[in-house]
């Protein structure tokens, strides 16, 4: 094992003479438009691995990394304001042109991606960094658009308007409404107290009760107000 590896090392030292110049271009796009982008970026550069091999980016977006020996590299654009893709570059001894593949940071290098990209390398800015968060400004309209606020306003309005509504209602409709209300309250109470079973039965019953409602409902109606009103009377005595 030792022999082949040392041979490889020897071979690689010979190969360093066969190093190639890695060429590519950054295409200006809407995210990073031409001269403006070059100006804000100041000094973006393209580098391989940890930056020993690198190149500046000229006015027209071109770059050339000179004398790249054979090997597998990660090519990245070191830019202050923009996000660029990372690429995997394989400089192979037998071929004149390097292999270019997409690379997702944090993923293992082997097996290499199946997709081969064209050479010379073409890159463009994916996004511009946005460093700031907008300040939350106060807006009365937005405040009232808040669902909680809407509910509050609605409840407030109902509290004020309810007595008048009740007053204007037809007495029969009022009876019906009161009955319906008590039923809903019953179901709600059952669910709130955790007694789901009785809650369900209340829902079930509501259907059954419908036909004989004429008989039982008035009794219930009579019962509840009296009991409610009796208590203060008792107290007064």
């Amino acid at each position: 094992m030792r022999l082949p590896s040392s041979l490889l090392l020897l071979a690689s030292s010979f190969c360093s003479a066969l190093a190639l110049d890695l060429k590519g271009q950054i295409l200006w796009n809407d995210v990073c438009p031409g001269k403006l982008c070059h100006h804000t970026e100041g000094q973006a550069r393209v580098q391989l691995d940890d930056g020993r091999l690198h190149s500046g980016i000229t006015r027209d977006g071109r770059f050339t990394i000179p004398n790249v020996p054979k090997g597998i590299y990660i090519l990245e654009v070191v830019a202050h304001d923009h996000v660029f893709d990372k690429l995997r570059i394989d400089v192979v001894e037998t071929e004149l042109l390097p292999e270019v593949r997409p690379y997702i940071p944090g993923t293992p290098l082997s097996p290499p991606a199946q997709v081969l990209l064209s050479y010379p390398i073409v890159l463009y800015a994916r996004a511009a960094y946005d460093f700031y968060i907008p300040r939350q400004s106060f807006n009365v309209l937005a405040m009232f658009q808040n669902p909680m606020m809407l509910m509050m306003v609605f409840t407030g309005v109902m509290v004020l308007a309810m007595p008048y509504l009740m007053k204007n209602m037809d007495p029969e409709a009022l009876q019906d409404f009161g009955k319906h209300q008590s039923k809903i309250a019953e179901v709600q109470n059952a669910f709130q107290s955790g007694d789901i079973k009785s809650g369900f039965s209340a829902i079930m019953n509501s259907g059954e009760e419908e036909p004989r409602s004429s008989g039982s409902a008035p009794a219930a109606r009579q019962g509840t107000p009296t009991s409610r009103n009796r208590a203060p009377k008792n107290k007064r005595r």
Partner: peptide, 19 residues
Amino acid sequence: FRILDVHSGVLIVERQLHT
């Protein structure tokens, strides 16, 4: 060897002449 714009500092040419 590099050539830059004298007022903006924009890189115009960058070329390695020898290693």
